[in-house]
């Protein structure tokens, strides 16, 4: 394998197929994501969006095709999963914070236990990250004491504490109250502005239009159409895309 350089796609997905039993969820998906890009994947429910990004950090396996992160094949039996997960952070729809740990401990846990870093350094970094997601003063609160939007921002900080190169967001605002959606989106926008490579599955069309560099529309396991947001939202070519956009916009 040749050495990966920053000019090459940081995530490269080639003809990925995935099925659950008889149901084919992904039927040949390909995309290239460059470092620092913000990608939004949109599409109707059940079109395979979430499955796709779960495949990128090997939470799901694939039946055929290839996914490479920084030139490293993800679905390789010999894959060093820890090395992959240091590079790829993931935020879930349901936050999935560890309920028995405080916000600060949630953020500190993985770097200390998994990367075996110095606890004092990790704590300083964790406090800075919580400040960055605007949760100063909530360090010692348990997840149960925080609102959905606050929990989701802790989850983002927890992922960032591993210093990933790519962040995956799986419908991170779908479970939130409308008034807290914005605070999470602002956090993601800050991240994107800092140059983090972000791959989002989202239903927030306005947000996608504002921050995405590239939008992919998936339906029934294939990419129907993709393009820059301005082009995509005003001049969609495929009738399926137009039908979907008519419904959600």
């Amino acid at each position: 394998m040749t050495q990966w350089t920053a000019e090459q796609p940081i995530v490269s997905i080639r003809d990925v197929h995935k099925s659950y039993g008889q149901v084919e969820v992904l039927r040949g998906i390909s995309m290239d994501i460059m470092k620092g890009e913000v990608i939004c994947i949109i599409g109707p429910s059940g079109s395979g969006k979430s499955t796709l990004i779960r495949c990128i950090n090997a939470l799901n396996d694939i039946q055929a095709g290839s996914i490479q992160v920084e030139g490293q094949e993800v679905h390789d039996a010999k894959l060093d999963k820890l090395a992959l997960r240091r590079k790829v952070g993931m935020v879930f729809q349901q936050y999935n914070l560890f309920p028995h740990k405080t916000a600060l401990q949630n953020v500190m846990m993985a770097p200390i236990k998994v990367l075996r870093e110095n606890p004092a350094e990790v704590e300083a970094r964790a406090r800075a990250l919580l400040k960055k997601v605007r949760l100063e003063g909530k360090e010692n609160h348990y997840p149960g004491e925080l609102s959905g939007g606050q929990q989701q921002r802790v989850a983002i900080a927890r992922s960032l504490a591993m210093r990933p190169d790519v962040m995956l967001f799986d419908e991170v605002t779908a479970a939130l109250d409308p008034e807290t959606v914005k605070e999470v989106l602002v956090t993601i926008k800050d991240l994107a502005a800092d140059g983090m490579t972000c791959i989002l599955v989202t239903h927030e069309m306005g947000f996608a239009r504002e921050v995405a560099d590239h939008i992919y529309f998936t339906d029934r396991g294939v990419i129907v159409e993709h393009g820059a947001p301005a082009e995509f939202f005003t001049n969609a070519q495929d009738p399926r895309t137009r039908a979907f956009l008519d419904q959600v916009l």
Binding site: N57, L59, K81, L82, R85, R86, V88, G89, M90, F92, N96, L97, F98, M109, A110, K113, V114, L115, R158, S159, M162
Partner: peptide
């Protein structure tokens, strides 16, 4: 899944 995605064994 959350633990797995953070690299926990």
């Amino acid at each position: 899944e959350a633990a797995e995605s953070l690299g926990f064994t």
